[in-house]
Amino acid sequence: MNHHLPKAGLTAALGLALTAALTGCGTSNGADGGSSDTVTIGTLRSQPHLYQPYFMERFAEEGVSYEVTTFDNSPDIKNALSSGAIDFAVLGAPSMLAGSAAGEDVRIIGSAANGGSGFVGTPEISGPEALAGARIGYPAGSSQEILLKLTLEAHGIDPDEDVELVNLAYPDMAPAYESGQVDAFLSAETGVSIALEAGAHEIASPYETPIGGVNIVFGTRAELIEDNPELVQSVTDSFIQAIGLMNEDPDTWVDGVVETFGLDAAVTARSVQNITPRYALDEAYLTELGAQAEQMVVFDQISGEPDLDTLIDPTFVEASEFAE
């Protein structure tokens, strides 16, 4: 079922979700007289690397159903999660790191997707060495902002002096490039693939920094973990199986994204080749996530590093019978 909500209905939907969340997940009586849980999950609209929630209903345990609510950006998802308006979230790692640094009751219980970013520009920009004076789009406060600044610095380019950085929302990135507002951008899919399909080319890989491909995570609140760990495990199991489907059957993944959001099929097919769905919180991943937290401090996205031992709870992915 397509649960994509128009902006006009989002406030009302979150109000209803918050009412249910005050007592945990929404609960109702099933046909057999037993109780059932409606789990609310937040994600971003129109981004293939955050599509996992739409497949989770296929793998729902008996008595559990999923309601997907879409947002325009990851900070809004994190705020809804922290407030209790939603139960779980698939969102950008920086938002969870920022929430934890601010003392919010959020927990990362799985990774969700690596990659999904790209640094592209006009054919005249042959490589990083040709970027001097260029106008470069980026989404402020995101993984891509850090990747852009680290990539520029690695090639001897001062982000503050040698180029002009233009803060743009994800949906505005490709149109800004096509209209000539920016010469290049480092942003997320599907904007990257839209530009590539229109003749842009990759300037440099955004993954050759200490952060690697870390981008999207799966999260919830400590309160829900404490109150209902059985449900958290059930939801995590569904999430892991959704990840498996995306990896094993990318055509179904592409078809789902196209049907849900009305995106171009060729662009979507290209974009998923730049995304690695995943769930594990292994040592290598945690090292890269820690590097991202450090760089968020360096680039003034947060004032202090979060306590990763508190923020990250690998218990549920490690305990899942569906984990490999």
Rank of each mutant, 00 (worst) to 15 (best):
I86V: 05
F316P: 06
A60K: 08
P123Q: 15
E62G: 02
E324D: 15
V214A: 14
V163Q: 13
S271M: 07
V297M: 07
S36F: 12
E164S: 15
G141L: 07
G137E: 10
I240S: 13
S117N: 11
S46E: 06
A112L: 07
L44H: 00
N2H: 09
E62A: 11
L150W: 08
R107F: 09
F59P: 10
N2Y: 04
Q181A: 13
H3R: 03
L281E: 11
E61H: 10
Y51D: 03
I125F: 11
R221L: 10
L18N: 06
S320Q: 14
T43Y: 10
L311C: 01
L231T: 07
G42D: 04
I194A: 10
S82A: 15
P250Y: 10
T70Y: 06
E248S: 13
S205Q: 08
S111G: 14
A113M: 01
E67P: 01
G180V: 02
G15R: 13
A20V: 02
G30A: 14
T69Q: 15
N247G: 13
R58T: 05
N247Y: 04
V257C: 09
I77M: 10
A85L: 00
I41G: 06
V39L: 06
G199N: 03
E294A: 12
E161I: 08
A323P: 11
G121N: 10
